[in-house]
Design a protein around this nucleic acid. Structure first.
Length: 589
RNA sequence: GCCGGAGUAACUCAGUGGUAGAGUAACUGUUUUGUAAACAGUAAGUCGUGGGUUCAAGUCCCUCCUCCGGCUCCA
């Protein structure tokens, strides 16, 4: 399909999606004539519409609504646009505070009049666009999805409305494909797999948002960090270790307190002093930088640490490993001279891309997080912000396709985020690089330049994974628990056929362990079939069934994850093969 | 935090006011197994918490906690 066609189809689909939301509103208003209407745009994969309903409803109403929407589609209802004057529009909606607010906003924005769409008896303030007639809508290609609360205009100070989400596509097949993707995503849910594969748990008694990594999860975590450590050593990073709390005064200097007061664990008071569980590693790394005088010859100084921080995320925001209260950032702070920024940004970008390639994230995009011009939440002066934003853009121009996202900056500086698609096509913000002129100023950081003058360095904050917890959560879903060999908690599972083979299996296990291969032995009094089934469920990369044949022959029959045919191979060859794959961190088995 | 849904054995779940159940896992025994589920038995639950209604509550009502889907937020 040509690009033009794609765009055209996309536009058609958006009209369809938006039009179904109007039909849904018709169906709702037939049931509850007094319903207030909030916003109702098309979105990726479908649409939603907010309602102020006289009573609370549940998804049980969906079949009834869907049936009615299908009937409406078949009635060949026309969508007609007309302009209404502000005066008239305000009069029409005099009892509707939501519409009144929207109309006032349009007026402020300098519009001449207000656009309305009429479909049958249903007339609604709406800028469109819509289908000409419901004939254009495929009645079998939409489905109501879920019901949720949503604040009017997205502000938690406002009333909460009822939002109904729907999915809509141009064909039933696309809808079915999308539903299949969702079903697959549910199967891969890292919270479910995390428990089934023995990777991590969250214990309510320990606290929500405070995951406990089990032995197998810890193997993955350590392997990821070891990999990153090696890469960073090659790139000239130095590793530091800092404690989990620091004096409140430190965070007052950095500005993290009271700026993030509401999302931090409150200060701990002891001996007339106050300490804060660290919400960020930067102040500690800055203290290390400041412990000495620095020359331009040393820069850039790159201080790295898997630093655990604690943030009091609101209870409703917590999700498994991907949103937690205690998290370990694969953090580093690069103290650099201004002219080194571009090089350092590129070096971090390269590292992030290497990670993507290694872990099979095939598609990604880059986003520059810039200031929200409306917001006051930023520290530092206009000049340094402009400079920082310019430098990032200059660095990326011609090298990456990027979009600029206003309002996505950190409070101390603009950033560059890498957003990758997983194998199901879902997007995750992974690597982040942030440019900061402000903390160096607040802490009065200096280095001595060529001419013996004191100069101000910049700080580049960066985390290629984001956080170990979140990254592991994403990887669990990305790989559906079937990790590449180098990350697999158990690389080989050995299963004995009968009790006569136990000793041989134990010796084999010891030998493989000596080769630094992670091996697990299953001597349970179970049928071979059952033991295989369990090892398959654990997504074990290699399985060795050991019986009389293996004890007599010098060949092993290896069952490889995802392959039907058994691999016949000698012990030595198998060890070399596996060690080779681990060393290259191969995706294949 | 807000809106909605849910919480019964380690896990997945059944149980609509009248004696707490199943499958899986665990444990014990039998079986000695050849590439995705051997057989038998045993043990296991203050039915999330606290209160209320009732002769009687897993079931109805209220409080709090936790989880799920969203919203808001995410240094």
């Amino acid at each position: 399909m040509s690009n033009n066609n794609q765009q055209k189809n996309q536009a058609e689909l958006e009209r369809v999606r938006h039009s179904i939301s109007h039909l849904m509103s018709m169906a709702i208003m037939e049931l509850y004539p007094k319903t207030g209407l909030g916003v109702g745009p098309f979105i990726e994969n479908g649409f939603y519409q907010d309602y102020d309903l006289p009573e609370s409803i549940s998804a049980e109403i969906f079949p009834k609504l869907e049936k009615r929407i299908k009937q409406l589609i078949k009635q060949d209802i026309k969508f007609e646009q007309h302009a209404v004057s502000f005066k008239e529009a305000l009069k029409l909606y005099q009892d509707d505070p939501y519409k009144t607010e929207l109309i006032e906003d349009l007026k402020k924005a300098g519009e001449k009049d207000v656009s309305f769409y009429k479909s049958d008896w249903f007339e609604n303030l709406c800028k469109g666009p819509h289908v000409k007639s419901t004939k254009e809508i495929n009645p079998d290609a939409f489905k109501l999805d879920k019901i949720a609360g949503a604040y009017w205009r997205g502000s938690e100070k406002n009333k909460m409305l009822t939002r109904i989400y729907g999915m809509a596509f141009s064909s039933k097949k696309e809808l079915d494909d999308h539903l299949a993707m969702l079903a697959e995503a549910e199967k891969r849910d890292h919270r479910k797999l995390g428990r089934e594969l023995g990777l991590f748990i969250i214990d309510p008694l320990v606290g929500s948002g405070l995951p406990l990594f089990l032995p197998k999860g810890t193997i993955i975590r350590d392997a990821l960090w070891e990999f990153l450590k090696e890469e960073q050593l090659k790139l000239g990073y130095q590793f530091v270790t800092t404690p989990h709390l620091g004096r409140l005064a430190l965070y007052k200097t950095s500005g993290h307190y009271p700026y993030y007061k509401d999302s931090q664990y409150p200060p701990i008071k002891i001996d007339e002093e106050e300490f804060l569980l660290k919400p960020m590693n930067c102040p500690h790394h800055i203290a290390i930088y400041q412990s000495q005088k620095h020359s331009y010859r040393e820069l850039p100084i790159r201080l790295a640490e898997a630093g655990t921080v604690y943030r009091y995320e609101k209870s409703g925001e917590l999700t498994g490993l991907v949103r937690v209260r205690g998290l370990t950032i694969d953090d580093a702070h690069i103290f650099a001279a201004e002219e080194q920024i571009e090089q350092e940004f590129l070096s971090v970008a390269e590292l992030v891309l290497k990670i993507f390639k290694l872990l099979n994230f095939k598609e990604f995009r880059v986003r520059i997080g810039a200031r929200d011009p409306q917001s006051q939440k930023y520290i530092g002066d206009e000049k340094s912000w402009n400079k920082a934003e310019k430098i990032i853009e200059k660095t990326l121009k011609g090298r990456f396709n990027y979009i600029i996202a206003p309002g996505e900056a950190a409070f101390y500086g603009p950033k560059m985020d890498f957003i990758a698609k997983d194998v199901l096509g879902r997007e995750w913000q992974l690597g982040t690089v942030q440019l900061d002129f402000n903390l160096p100023e607040r802490f009065a950081l200096t280095y001595t330049d060529k001419n013996g003058k004191e100069k101000r360095p910049v700080i580049i904050h960066r985390a290629p994974f984001g956080s170990l917890e979140r990254f592991i959560g994403i990887l669990i879903e990305h790989f559906a628990g079937a990790f590449p060999l180098w990350l697999s908690p158990v690389q080989i599972k050995i299963l004995n056929v009968g009790s006569a083979h136990e000793k041989f299996c134990q010796e084999l296990t010891t030998k493989l362990k000596d080769e630094n291969i992670r091996v697990e032995l299953d001597l349970a009094n179970e049928t071979v079939g059952n033991k295989i089934r369990q090892a398959v469920a654990q997504k074990t990369p290699y399985m060795l069934v050991i019986g009389d044949k293996e004890m007599k022959s010098d060949k092993l029959m290896v069952r490889v994850r995802g392959q039907e045919k058994l691999l016949e191979i000698s012990y030595r060859e198998l060890v070399e093969k596996i060690k080779g794959l681990i060393k290259e961190k191969s995706l294949a088995l």
